[in-house]
């Protein structure tokens, strides 16, 4: 890494012009969505561009009508159920992130400390998994989750679930939160293991041995000594996993049913209608974009670490 010196070179004004143009190009479209999400459809369609409009949160109210506690005057029927979808998205993304981190961390630790596989083997398999497009997983996952990964309704556990939650047929993974979470965890594990491995390698062995001398078992050493030291790596891995689980559309749309739809699915469904309500759709898009934007603003260094680790050594 280059050292960040205190003195900054002064540059030609044209250079700053280029930089400003680049910034506008990069965030302009997002800003446009942000502004439009506060406009009524009339204002969007009339094309009164610029900032001459009365901002309103009506679009957000329409989008979240099923969870907001009060009645809305502009709405007599709550057609969009985005509130429920947000809860689904949040549950799925958070649980997959936590599971991936815990499982990936343990695996990475075992790979480093007990020398099963070299780093080359892990990065090779990471690349192989990264090569598989979600569309390729669509067919087999749809088939398996619907037909093979099931518990018969006559078995003890199956009948228990059917009595408890209702429904017909065998109890299958498809249509449940766990079904979607399982595929997200599997998809993200190789990358997470690989990132965490590079952080765990840097933890000095002596520290662990000292803890072991004091009578700590392998699990205690892992949780009390190693975990606190690899926090930056955990942050990078968490953001990447959350981003994929939060943004993913294709597999979620194949595996979810009426009650487990996530936000991207609802956005796509509403976009394919003939008359797009731009204001509302922009508001939902904004709501979906907010968590990743917050992560980016607060943890851009970790994100860049995670991104460059793939290609740039050292």
């Amino acid at each position: 890494m280059s050292s960040s010196s205190e003195t900054h070179q002064s540059q030609h004004p044209a250079f700053y012009m280029v930089v400003v143009m680049l910034i506008i190009m990069a965030i302009g479209p997002i800003a446009l969505m942000f502004v439009n999400s506060f406009k009524l459809d009339v204002d969007i369609i009339s094309g009164t561009s610029g900032l001459l409009f009365l901002p309103t949160i009506q679009n957000y109210e329409t989008a979240l009508c099923d969870v907001l506690p009060y009645e809305m005057e502009h709405l007599d029927f709550c057609a969009l159920k985005f509130g429920g979808a947000f809860v689904n998205s949040l549950v799925i993304a958070l649980v997959s992130t936590i599971l991936t981190l815990v499982i990936g961390c343990m695996a990475a630790y075992a790979l480093v400390r007990f020398r099963f596989m070299g780093r080359d083997a892990v990065s090779g398999s990471t690349l192989m998994v990264r090569m598989v497009p979600p569309a390729v997983l669509l067919v087999p996952v749809f088939g398996l989750w619907n037909n093979e990964f099931c518990i018969s309704k006559t078995s003890w556990l199956g009948s228990l679930i059917r009595d408890e939650f209702g429904g017909r047929g065998d109890v299958c993974l498809a249509g449940t939160h766990s079904g979607i979470i399982l595929i997200y965890v599997a998809m993200n594990l190789p990358f997470v293991i690989w990132i965490l491995q590079s952080f765990i390698v840097q933890v000095p062995r002596q520290l662990e041995e000292a803890a072991r001398m004091d009578g700590a078992g392998p699990f205690q050493v892992f949780f009390k000594v190693v975990l606190p030291l690899i926090k930056p790596g955990l942050a990078a891995a968490a953001i990447f996993t959350f981003r994929i689980a939060w943004n993913e559309y294709l597999l979620a749309s194949a595996l979810s049913d009426r009650d487990t739809k996530t936000v991207p699915i609802l956005i796509v469904n509403n976009m394919s209608e003939f008359n797009v309500e731009w204001g509302v759709i922009m508001a939902t898009g904004m709501l979906l974009a907010i968590p990743p934007i917050i992560f980016t603003l607060f943890a851009s260094r970790q994100i860049i670490t995670g991104m460059t680790a793939g290609a740039v050594k050292g």
Partner: peptide, 22 residues
Amino acid sequence: LRTLFILPMMIAPVVVGLIWRY
């Protein structure tokens, strides 16, 4: 500058499609 530049790839592809379609 780098933080602003990575924003587009962090937001959902569905949202990117929506912005551009608009």
